[in-house]
Design a protein around this nucleic acid. Structure first.
Lengths: 146, 146
DNA sequence: CTACGAATTCAAGCCAACTTGAGGTCAAGC
DNA sequence: GCTTGACCTCAAGTTGGCTTGAATTCGTAG
């Protein structure tokens, strides 16, 4: 089995060595041993780091991420807490979906200010709701006024 | 028309007055005028703040949010840049979806360490890919070895 | 065997996004 | 007219997540 220098890990993940040292310092990842002074990492750490960066892009703190996937290689949290985290992510997905739709609408909308655009207001206001936002279907057979 | 004190805005949005003052300071929102010393806000600001918090939960900086929806009440960015932002959000949605699925899997998986679980590895490794992660369908009629 | 380069430690610094605290102002209700 | 409490300003502090820099230690290639 091959082990990885911090530079290899950095190259393969895009995360800087300084950040990796920091992650180790806070116990988020571990090196297996030292070769001289140099940390040697298991290839598994690449997967772990992927999870970390995913978690970060989801807006979770490193502490929360540690709780989810564990320093120990296994989650600190009980099953239901993990499901609650998953639910949290689901909420965030809904928010992001609304934001994306709003953004696309803003890109195309001709209204002088989006505050005056009812579609915009609906998109934003519905964003917290449980269901998906559903825009009225265009009815091509009756090309009314825009 | 009624105007809102900073306290009202705070109460209705859950954003602290200090944060709202900060937002105004950096030009992310505006108060219309002062009543004595007190800032008076248009009710429209509530919608704006909702967008801001959505943007934040998406991991955008206040600066990026300002560019998207504009200090000026209208985006600073041209249409295609907005669509690129929307694409960025789409990516994030995919990541979040993968993270959520991984988390739910971790919650249920019996493997001693998730590094040893092939399902786990697939979930994480596929997360960057374009399509949705598709788990193999169970085929109840041919109950093979797990 | 020596030089090189990649790694190390440690303390300090940095940025965004706020929060806190001290001291001051004001309008509305009694 | 006075008190009250919600607001104000401004400077300084905080937190998370790193980055930077100086001084040092190694392992390997030549």
């Amino acid at each position: 089995m091959k082990f990885l220098d911090i530079g290899d890990v950095s190259a393969q993940t895009g995360v800087k060595p300084s950040a990796l040292r920091y992650y180790e310092e806070i116990g988020l990842i571990q090196s297996l041993f030292r070769h001289g002074l140099r940390r040697q990492f298991s290839p598994d750490v690449l997967l772990q780091i992927k999870l970390i960066t995913m978690g970060q892009s989801a807006g979770f703190s490193l502490e929360e991420i540690a709780a989810m996937f564990g320093k120990s290689g296994r989650p600190d949290l009980p099953r239901d807490a993990l499901h609650r985290k998953a639910d949290e992510i689901d909420d965030k997905i809904h928010q992001l979906t609304a934001l994306r739709d709003t953004l696309r609408h803003v890109a195309e909308c001709k209204a002088p200010s989006h505050m005056e655009c009812p579609t915009f207001r609906r998109l934003v206001e519905l964003s917290g709701k449980k269901g998906r936002v559903r825009l009225k279907r265009k009815r091509p057979q009756t090309p009314g006024v825009i």
